[in-house]
Design a protein around this nucleic acid. Structure first.
Lengths: 180, 180, 180, 180
DNA sequence: AATGAATGAGCTTTCATTCAT
DNA sequence: AATGAATGAAAGCTCATTCAT
């Protein structure tokens, strides 16, 4: 069984993605993770804030894994983007259309401090870097790749927002036609 | 002087855009608007939810006005997009880089009900429609215009998110090069 | 019936005098005053700290009243001190020997900030001033009166401490023989 | 290096003197003593209460040592009192004016049980006895000595209280003029 | 329409203690 | 003897809302 700490971060991640930092009570996280109240602060001394940062890190890693899984087997960039968006749309549907960008929903709306903003900024940069790396490997020039990655990332963030408003994953699925 | 109701909605809007629905307490809104505790429910019978919807409507209208002001005097679509993004970047800077999409921040993270989602979805559609209308007027075919508007909208939502994470409006200012 | 605010301060005073600032929970004060949880912060915006300051002020006034009642009818200073100590010993007994100096117990042990210390210091000065004023009226020179008041005050504080440790009010009752 | 047990009691003493029994959390004591969480109950089976009693005993012994050091070399009683008060004032200043009577602050405000009250009462009696013993040695009759010791003790307790409220050790330094 | 008081559920966090290793 | 994890009650406080005037 996963460690108490990990269980807490994962459950927190699910909830934060759905209702944002302030929309989720710690009690609910604890209940779902089957962890008693006092234990949270043993594993996350700064409480809810630490928990959100940990949850964002886990979610960010998962997105990186999805990027790799999508592009590693792709013949060209467009193909990789298509697979990537397909996987994300599926993930969106699994969660009944209630989630947005897994890290943005968690960290935006949280305490407005430098740590939260820096973490978010760093994660976004990692995503774009990883996409650009794949684009280069698949034949684009470094400049073009960076441009492509940024275009994909920005549109994807927008798609998550629109898809969630509509409760419809098609926005995500139709993204490749728009950015490639 | 503006009506109590309007003042409440405007102040609420500013705060929701910065910290999201659950991140803002009603007391703070009342205090900033200079309105006594008991008065809120005379103007907004359903309380905080009504207030958020009103605030979102006001913000949405403002964006429509900015769209028109940007495209009305533009010689071509690219020119309109450039002016639009410039104005939004300026607006972002005025608020010290602390805000995101004015309606998304307000309604996402709010109570997860049909009214909120529908309102958000409708506002997004209005924005895209208005942009598309301008694009057609400036020479694009209806299909191309719809595509352009969607591309701009999605990237813009992403830019708001990234700009806020970085605390830097340049993401918004550089958008035209990415989507035109 | 006394106002909610007053009832809260009085009940808080009794409890703080017995168990100190940190030894008393807000819930207990609310329960004894018959006031619901949320109401406290309407009347005392800074919560427990405000409550303690208000309680200390009330207790301080009460001591001033006892000083006046003791000395106003006294033929000489020693007589006034005797009556004063007798009244305080009686007050001590009424509370079953569980209390100390009514303001010291409340404010020492509270948050260690300037406001608390200043309030305490100001109250002590008021007590000594009042005693000295009576001493002058009863024939002492201003210098002697100040000396007498200080001697009485310091010993009284000590008596409260010792009486509480022993659970015996005799220390207070025997004070006149020691300081006059 | 001192034993873990002793280190715990000493650190606890410092903190209790400043903020009282309930004002100090066990975690803080453990952290400052560099002792891990689970270890406390090996050395103090009854936990916080045992710790406070041990801390009070150590502080009480220290005061006895200061009494002896002050009076042993004194030519007369007044001289001894002066040295004693000077030493205590210095001790007060070293702790930045934040402490009161070392045992009273620790035990009052603690759990209101017989053990705590008895310990406090016993320590106070020891202090007065020791002072009286010195007074007899320096020429006073047993009765006078007891009276003198009580007068000094009560005023000293009051001085600690007032000095702490004022953040000024002069109250303690000026004590001999008041009680001799 | 306007208002200050009231309301209690809920919030995040800290507490002293116990447990299993 | 030593230790990090676990524990849940209780802490002080804020919340959105309703009430009585």
């Amino acid at each position: 069984m996963k460690s108490t700490r990990t269980r807490l971060a994962i459950e927190a991640g699910y909830l934060f993605q759905q209702r944002g930092y302030h929309g989720v009570g710690i009690s609910e996280v604890l209940e779902r993770a089957g962890v008693p109240k006092g234990s949270l602060y043993h594993h996350f001394p700064n409480g809810k804030a630490d928990l959100a940062l940990a949850a964002a890190d886990i979610a960010a890693e998962e997105v990186l894994r999805i990027i790799d899984a999508s592009f590693d087997q792709a013949g060209d960039y467009t193909n990789g983007v298509t697979t990537f968006c397909y996987k994300l749309a599926k993930y969106f549907d699994i969660h009944e259309g209630k989630i947005g960008c897994p890290v943005s929903a968690t960290l935006h709306g949280g305490p407005d401090n430098a740590t939260f903003r820096d973490t978010l900024s760093r994660i976004f940069a990692q995503w774009m870097d990883r996409i650009a790396t794949h684009a280069v490997r698949l034949g684009q020039s470094p400049d073009d790749a960076e441009q492509s990655a940024k275009r994909l990332f920005l549109s994807l963030e927008g798609s998550w927002t629109l898809a969630r408003a509509r409760g419809d994953s098609n926005v995500i699925r139709q993204l490749p036609a728009l950015v490639c």
